[in-house]
Simulated scan of single mutants.
Amino acid sequence: MREMELYKREDGLPAVVQHLLERSGSSVSVEIHDSEGRHTIAGGKYSLAQHKITLYWDGIQEQCRTLYGSLKPFEQHLAAVFAHELGHAEDRELEELADQLDCTDDPLEKKRIALRIETNAWSYASRLLQEDNSEFLHFLMHMSLEPYHDGAA
């Protein structure tokens, strides 16, 4: 049995993903799969045009191995990644911010806008997860946002 199957319910979504989707009340569609042979560390992405979250099982596993040295916190990490992607899906500013990002050529402004997009998503994730494990979440937020802070202030 593949590792992914251990977490799936009858509806195909891991219980933690289904729980957060229900808690959020979001109408976003969700797909979970491997990154199809591409080596990636991306855990997920949100498509504004399709209102769809794609979670990359192998990317989330790789993040766990890189950040924690094991897959032990996999479910907790999956919850944080999914909550973050839900943050993008439910961000009422995202479309406007994405348009601003497309309309500027200034690298510093692009970084500031991207930081705002990511910060909005993490703020939503923090509220959705109700800071079940705030130290864990704050560590992930710091690691995720660190590249955006370089030169963005």
Rank of each mutant, 00 (worst) to 15 (best):
E3Y: 14
E3G: 09
M4E: 14
E5W: 08
L6M: 14
Y7P: 04
Y7S: 03
K8E: 07
R9N: 06
E10V: 10
D11G: 05
D11I: 08
D11C: 08
L13Y: 09
P14W: 03
A15L: 11
V17P: 01
Q18I: 00
L20P: 00
L20H: 02
L21S: 01
L21R: 09
L21W: 03
E22M: 08
R23N: 08
G25D: 11
V28E: 15
V28L: 15
S29Y: 10
I32P: 01
I32R: 01
D34G: 14
S35A: 13
S35C: 10
G37E: 06
H39T: 07
I41R: 14
A42F: 13
G43N: 10
G44R: 13
S47G: 08
L48A: 12
A49V: 09
W57G: 03
D58E: 02
D58L: 03
D58G: 03
G59Q: 07
R65S: 05
S70P: 00
P73D: 09
F74T: 00
E75C: 02
Q76G: 02
L78V: 07
L78I: 04
A79Q: 02
A80N: 05
A80T: 11
F82I: 04
A83T: 00
H84K: 12
L86W: 03
H88G: 03
H88Y: 06
E93D: 15
L94C: 06
L94G: 02
L97W: 09
L97I: 10
L97M: 15
D99E: 13
Q100A: 07
C103L: 11
T104R: 05
P107Y: 10
P107I: 07
K110M: 11
K110C: 05
K111G: 03
R112W: 02
I113R: 04
I113P: 03
L115E: 06
R116E: 11
E118S: 04
E118A: 08
T119F: 07
T119H: 10
A121Q: 04
W122H: 11
W122L: 01
W122S: 00
S123Y: 07
A125K: 13
S126W: 09
S126G: 09
R127D: 13
L128R: 12
E131R: 15
N133M: 05
E135L: 13
E135Q: 13
F136A: 05
F136H: 10
L137Y: 11
H138R: 14
H138G: 14
H138D: 15
L140Y: 08
L140W: 06
L140V: 08
M141E: 12
M143Q: 15
L145K: 06
L145G: 06
P147N: 01
H149V: 04
G151T: 05
A153L: 15
A153R: 14
A153P: 12
